[in-house]
Design a protein around this nucleic acid. Structure first.
Lengths: 101, 101
DNA sequence: GATTTATGCTACACTTTATGTAGCGTCAAG
DNA sequence: CTTGACGCTACATAAAGTGTAGCATAAATC
C-alpha cells in the first residue's frame, strides 16, 4: 500500500495549515503587523505556547516574518492570504451562522 | 470564547477547516466519492474516530454528503475545493520540500 | 441459511497536543 | 530603579487524536 509517499508540497502545506489556529493566525495577519501579544488578543487569547509554535511553523514556510514592527506576512504570505480571502467570500455566501461542531 | 463578536461565517469556517485532517480530507475528496475506509487509506490511515468527527463537521457545513456511492463533495463543497486548489498551486511554486514543524 | 466480505461506524485505553497561568529576561521610558 | 511592554518559556491540567478491537448491517458467495 505504501507505494508512493513523496512529500508533495501540498501535503506540507496542508499539514501546517491544518494545525489548530494556523488558518486563523494567517487570516488575522492580513491586517498589517501585530506584536506577539496583540496577535494573541485578536486570536481570542490563544496560549503563548501555541502561538509561538504556529509562528515558527509559518516562519519555516516563509510566509511570516518578525521585524521591529512585529509579525507580518511576507510577500509569499500575502499571496497565500489572498487565496484564503476566497474562503471568506465563500463563507459569506454559503454559511448561515447558527451552530458549530 | 465568551460572547464578544457575532460568530462571523469566516470564523465558523476557519474553526472547522482549522481542525486537524479537515483540509486534507477535503483535498482528497476532490477525486470523486470514497467509502469511509477508502478515505481512511488515502488520508494516511487516520483513525476512524477522527475521520467520523471530521465528516460530521463537513456534513454540518453541507460541503460533504454520504450516499450509496460513498462520501463526496456537494456543490458547495466543490466550490470550496476549487478555492483550495489555489493552495495547491501556491504550494507547488513556493514550497521546497524540506521544512517541517 | 450459513459464511464471507465489505460497509460505517463505536469503545476504550493510550499518547500527543493545546490550554491557562505564572513568570523570566530584555529593553526603553519615566 | 521602578514600571511597563515585549517575546517568549515552564509546567501542570485538560482536551484532542491514535490504534486496535470489534459490533451491527447488508450484499455476495457457497
Amino acid at each position: 500500500m505504501s507505494g508512493e509517499k513523496s512529500p508533495r508540497p501540498i501535503m506540507i502545506l496542508l499539514d501546517i495549515l491544518g494545525k489548530r489556529w494556523t488558518l486563523r493566525i494567517m487570516w488575522e495577519l492580513r491586517n498589517g503587523p501585530f506584536t506577539f501579544r496583540a496577535l494573541q488578543e485578536v486570536c481570542d487569547m490563544l496560549s503563548p505556547t501555541t502561538l509561538n509554535k504556529r509562528l515558527n511553523d509559518l516562519k519555516s514556510l516563509n510566509v511570516v516574518d518578525h521585524q521591529s514592527n512585529g509579525y507580518q506576512l511576507t510577500t509569499k504570505g500575502l499571496e497565500l492570504a489572498k487565496i484564503m480571502m476566497g474562503l471568506t467570500e465563500w463563507a459569506g455566501k454559503e454559511i448561515t451562522p447558527h451552530a458549530k461542531s
